[in-house]
């Protein structure tokens, strides 16, 4: 059809319609991306009073420097392990709720939207939420005290070891609905006739899950993992609100590290190089994960 439109000599309507999208992409995605590439290759610090196009070209120097930076490496490792813990717990919770909820449960219609409320809440409110329940006089300390039967009054957010716990928990709480939603829709779509057939053949509940449901969910699980991981690598709001990466740098994530060095210390070249390294690592991980799905599907 597009040929017909072109023949008239006017600008094809499909190009016109795509134009606004492409303009936005150009100014908010492509140009910034090119700038970030440039920044990462020069030595640009706005505080020096030198414009970025006049900055000294240092090639991969920033990359080497940031890779040698213990703080950066630790932030990366910390983010990855926070993400992995979150993913693990979220999948467990998600799968558990999803598989129970696919059964014949009373009040399903109310429980379903209730269970996914956390994903709709602003992260900053979630941070506030966890600040409240983990405060020294809050309910978490109270419950732990009751369980341990001794007075327990940790100040979670300034504790070098514990401070990461509320952050991880708030992340889990925010995002478990996503894994739940994805797994739930996957489970619902498995044909009931197949499951019934397996049951007639005498499959146990365990075999049913492992042999029939899980292989079918593999693709959807990988998609969920990749997308969830993409979000997890961006953890910022809660850290910024609750701990500011502290105490010390104990709860510093990639995003917070980049924020700190970019906005507080104005080390823009340094941060840009870091961003590319992170993109490279995540692309590598994601393409491996996605390839396994695509190969599977063929």
């Amino acid at each position: 059809m597009s040929e017909r439109i072109k023949r008239k000599g006017k600008i094809p309507v499909n190009i016109i319609m795509l134009l606004p999208t492409n303009i936005i992409i150009l100014f908010l995605i492509i140009i910034p991306t090119i700038l970030v590439i440039w920044f990462s290759l020069v030595n640009f610090q706005p505080t020096f009073g030198i414009n970025f196009w006049q900055s000294k070209f240092v090639f991969l120097d920033n990359y080497f420097k940031i890779l040698m930076d213990d703080e950066f490496v630790k932030a990366v490792i910390r983010t990855v392990y926070i993400s992995l813990i979150c993913l693990g717990v979220e999948f467990t919770i998600g799968l558990l709720i999803a598989s129970i909820l696919t059964g014949n449960i009373h009040g399903k219609k109310i429980l379903y939207p209730l269970l996914i409320i956390p994903i709709m809440i602003p992260p900053i409110v979630i941070g506030n939420n966890f600040w409240l329940i983990f405060s020294a006089n809050g309910p978490v300390n109270q419950i732990i005290s009751i369980i341990l039967n001794t007075e327990f009054k940790a100040s979670w957010f300034s504790h070098p070891k514990y401070a990461i716990i509320p952050i991880i928990l708030s992340e889990i709480w925010h995002w478990y609905p996503l894994t739940f939603l994805i797994l739930f829709s996957g489970l619902v779509n498995i044909s009931t006739s197949e499951i019934r057939a397996a049951k007639i053949l005498g499959a146990t509940e365990w075999q049913l899950s492992w042999r029939i449901k899980f292989p079918k969910l593999k693709g959807i699980i990988t998609i969920a993992l990749v997308i969830r991981m993409m979000e997890a690598l961006k953890v910022f709001d809660v850290v910024h609100l609750l701990t500011h990466g502290g105490p010390g740098t104990r709860t510093q994530t990639i995003s917070f590290y980049l924020f700190k060095y970019g906005f507080k210390y104005s080390r823009i070249s340094y941060v840009s190089a870091g961003a590319w390294i992170i993109l490279f690592i995540s692309l590598l991980g994601f393409s491996l994960a996605l390839r396994s799905v695509l190969v599977e599907r063929k």
């Binding site: 910034p32 991306t33 970030v36 961006k234 970019g262 961003a275 590319w276 992170i278 692309l283």
Partner: peptide, 17 residues
């Protein structure tokens, strides 16, 4: 693609722009 890029790094050129 840009969804995989750390948003913090994108904000800096945006800010300059």
């Amino acid at each position: 693609m840009p969804r995989m890029f750390p948003p913090m790094a994108m904000i800096i050129p945006l800010m300059i722009f």
